[in-house]
């Protein structure tokens, strides 16, 4: 194991890259989740159709293929993305598709009576979403988003295939240089596990934060 630990600088580097990749593609995924998820609820069929095509395309094709496409095919079309950017975009677009379903379902789960109350108070459609439906949908989204962000952490491992020097990539380097297989892999598994545990407790904390003092499910009106 000692042979492995002398590689600690690149292990830390790899861990930081994995964290960076997860956070950055998480932000991309979050923006896409809301944009596509709300577009799927639009009153205009063209908007709904575009969002649905996006969803089915990115959910229906593999994340690895999407990443290869962005890294290897886009340059042929004259678009050059640095590896890290291609990884962020591919992971973010892919997870965003799944996230959009979470957003759509959570917004739809808010009861019809809430829409009617807002209408009776003469809210515009935008105000209805902004001030009534989305605030009530967010606590519903958080557990599912928590699962997705762990999926995302695991998904970033495929970024090593396009030369991004994340944790998985570094474990391969150590493997080649030391001819050890078991040790580096156990080490990165432990690190992935620690990272996902941190994400799990972050989700738990957010769940508590959003339910504090305003438990929506116990309220009247349903």
């Amino acid at each position: 194991m000692n042979e492995v630990f002398i590689f600690w600088p690149i292990i830390i580097d790899g861990t930081l890259t994995t964290i960076k990749l997860t956070l950055a593609s998480g932000v991309v995924a979050l923006i896409i989740s809301f944009t596509v998820g709300l577009a799927r609820l639009s009153r205009h069929w063209v908007v709904r159709a575009i969002a649905t095509i996006y969803l089915e395309f990115f959910r229906g094709t593999s994340a690895i293929v999407q990443m290869f496409f962005m890294y290897f095919v886009l340059p042929l079309l004259g678009v050059f993305l640095p590896a890290l950017m291609a990884g962020i975009v591919a992971c973010g677009f892919n997870l965003g598709a799944y996230g959009s379903e979470v957003v759509r379902a959570s917004v739809q789960s808010v009861g019809r009576e809430q829409r009617e109350a807002a209408k009776a108070l003469n809210y515009t459609n935008f105000q209805l979403y902004r001030h009534v439906l989305i605030p009530q949908a967010i606590p519903v989204m958080i557990p599912s988003f928590g699962n997705l962000v762990i999926e995302l952490l695991k998904l970033t491992a495929v970024a090593s295939l396009i030369t991004i020097s994340d944790l998985t990539f570094m474990s391969q380097i150590i493997r080649v240089q030391t001819a050890l297989t078991l040790e580096p892999l156990i080490l990165i598994m432990v690190i992935y596990f620690i990272l996902s545990s941190i994400l799990v407790s972050g989700t738990k904390w957010l769940e508590r934060y959003f339910s504090a003092g305003r438990n929506i499910h116990k309220s009247g009106g349903n």
């Binding site: 109350a117 009776a120 003469n122 809210y123 009530q136 309220s219 009247g220």
Partner: peptide
């Protein structure tokens, strides 16, 4: 026109006071 419903239909994520304030501010 205004309406009061059988099931109240208050906004559960807002306090009583905010339930009354928000529509005034928005609408």
């Amino acid at each position: 026109i205004g309406m009061v419903f059988q099931q109240f239909n208050l906004f559960p994520h807002l306090t009583a006071l905010s339930n009354i304030e928000q529509p005034q501010i928005l609408v």
